[in-house]
């Protein structure tokens, strides 16, 4: 399993920067927002956490369709399916590798983009922390979508359509935890803990569903 993790990480670094494209997309989306809403620093500070979260959500969905499609194209998926590792674990490890390669860089880039958004230190820290807790959940549930669309030639867009509604809870609790941290009366912990719980739940549902879909769509 460590071997699979190491291989996927190596691939993401080498294959023309699959990891960096996600961060680049994230930065571009966030950089475009001020052009849309205007350079009002107070407004930007207010909507900053939400913008960062939406940007991260879209960026983490971006590379998901390749998660299993690349394996399918070169025949590796057949061999992965044949091993009773079990398959759920294989999918889980692939998700972890994918998150390390594309999700973690987003978390690391978030503080920098927070500065652009004129957010204060608490808001930046809270956003980074919630992204750290929330982006794995998006990857896990996205893996289910990627597996469902693995056999489709233009699965990329469909994956996003299928996964985005399912990722709404993650977005809601991620953003509300950040706002709870910066606005006084609301407590930070309840939404944050729900976010963590969602993460754990999706860590189960996602790989199980993905493994089932991969088995059923093998041809």
């Amino acid at each position: 399993m460590i071997a699979l993790l190491a291989r996927d990480l190596k691939l993401s670094v080498r294959a023309g920067g699959g990891a960096l494209i996600g961060v680049l997309f994230f930065m571009t989306v966030v950089a475009v927002i001020p052009f849309g809403v205007g350079p009002d620093l107070n407004l930007l500070a207010r909507i900053g956490p939400a913008i960062l979260w939406i940007g991260a959500l879209l960026a983490s969905l971006l590379g998901l369709d390749r998660l299993f499609q690349a394996e399918r194209e070169d025949g590796s998926l057949d061999l992965l399916l044949m091993q009773e590792t079990p398959l759920v674990l294989t999918v889980f490890v692939k998700c972890i590798a994918h998150w390390l390669a594309t999700g973690l860089p987003l978390v690391i880039a978030a503080p920098l983009l927070g500065l652009f958004m004129n957010m204060d230190e608490t808001a930046i820290a809270a956003t980074t922390l919630t992204l750290l807790a929330g982006t794995p959940a998006i990857t896990f549930i996205g893996a289910a979508g990627a597996a469902i669309a693995v056999a489709l030639p233009r699965g990329g867009l469909l994956v996003s359509i299928l996964v985005l509604p399912l990722a709404i809870p993650v977005l809601i609790f991620g953003v509300s935890a950040v706002y709870a941290a910066i606005q006084e009366p609301a407590p930070f912990l309840p939404p944050f803990l729900i976010l963590v719980a969602l993460n754990l739940l999706f860590a189960v549902i996602g790989p199980v569903a993905a493994a089932a879909a991969l088995r059923l769509s093998s041809d």
Partner: peptide
């Protein structure tokens, strides 16, 4: 195959 794969999606959505 479409039925099987959609079934997985339906159940994920249902949960």
């Amino acid at each position: 195959r479409a039925a099987k794969v959609s079934a997985v999606l339906i159940l994920v959505g249902f949960v």
